[in-house]
Design a protein around this nucleic acid. Structure first.
Length: 293
DNA sequence: ACTGTACCCTGTAGGC
DNA sequence: TGCCTACAGGGTACAG
């Protein structure tokens, strides 16, 4: 579910509630999500102050006063919800009114300001791991990650270098977290539309014979950046499950140009094409075969 | 080195 | 109403 804009929106909602607070209690309702919760999870969290809440790719990272990082991935359906001080006592009660099925409330964090944070995840593709902050960059989850798309590191030259000689199609290339970290199924389709590039095009066409960026590579960079920025400003996209930390749906789904719009007319003025659904690397792709070349 | 597929898990929508 | 299939913002592990 959550791609970079959704994770960033969750981060911004959680940060003012959790940063600077101490964790006073941790309650797990089952031993695992996608993976088991970290060893001695309770002991490593309780008593720690949350000193920072960052995002890298689709990971949320809480920096703790112990020097460890709590790294969280929301998978497809993971959701953090803030329960304000003085609200109802059990997560189950609150989720009956503002959230999903309380049977999938897997983790409860209590904070020194009286707030509670509930992690709910029906499919349990999410996971949490802990590691010393100093070791994070070399951790297997982070070591191979590609550039942050909103950083200056995402440049036509970078894409050209990484795409050189690659026959993979552009859709799969951009979905690969080792190339650009944080893009997912929705925003790759949208960015390719705005860059007027076919998802079927070979990645290597982003580079010329000398490895220099081609016109398509130069179009792709601002397209990716603008789509992500617009989506963050809209609070992300809600297809079905996604909510921010306050339970609010995203708004960007109303501005999809192509995603989930198969059969509808291409929104590009004067194009007249019809949006098509295809499958790349096992995931649905939406594009206009007429203006995306 | 690259595919393509299956799989992890649950919920929901649509066809019959 | 129910049963069945397909599919869903993620990532990984295989076989070929």
């Amino acid at each position: 579910m959550p791609e970079l804009p959704e994770v960033e929106t969750v981060r911004r909602g959680l940060a003012p509630v959790v940063v600077g607070r101490r964790i006073t209690d941790v309650e797990t309702r089952r031993p695992d999500l996608r993976f088991p919760f970290p060893e001695r999870f309770f002991e490593r969290l309780v008593g720690q102050k949350v000193v920072s809440l960052d995002r890298r790719a689709k990971y949320l990272i809480a920096g703790l006063s112990s020097g460890e990082d709590l790294v969280m991935h929301l998978g497809m359906t993971g959701r953090f919800t803030i329960v304000q001080h003085g609200h109802r006592e059990t997560p189950g009660e609150y989720t009956n009114t503002v959230g999903p099925n309380p049977a999938h409330d897997h983790l409860l964090l209590r904070l020194s300001n009286g707030s509670r944070i509930v992690y709910n995840d029906p499919r349990r593709f999410g996971f949490m791991v802990m590691m010393p902050h100093a070791e994070r960059a070399q951790h297997p989850l982070f070591r191979g990650l590609g550039v942050e798309p909103l950083s200056p590191e995402l440049a036509p030259q970078y894409l050209a270098r990484r795409a050189q000689g690659k026959k993979v199609n552009l859709k799969a290339f951009l979905m690969d977290q080792r190339i650009v970290a944080g893009l997912g199924n929705i925003y790759v389709s949208e960015a390719l539309f705005w860059a007027r590039l076919s998802p079927n095009r070979a990645a290597r066409t982003l580079a010329d014979r000398r490895g220099a960026p081609t016109e398509p590579a130069k179009r792709l960079v601002p397209a990716i950046r603008e789509v992500l920025e617009l989506a963050i400003n809209a609070g992300g996209s809600t297809l079905r499950d996604y909510r921010d930390a306050n339970g609010v749906s995203g708004g960007f789904q109303h501005r999809f140009a192509v995603y989930d719009r198969a059969g509808q007319p291409c929104p590009r003025p004067g194009c007249g094409g019809t949006i098509r659904r295809a499958v790349h690397a096992g995931r649905a792709t939406f594009y206009c075969p007429r203006c995306q070349r």
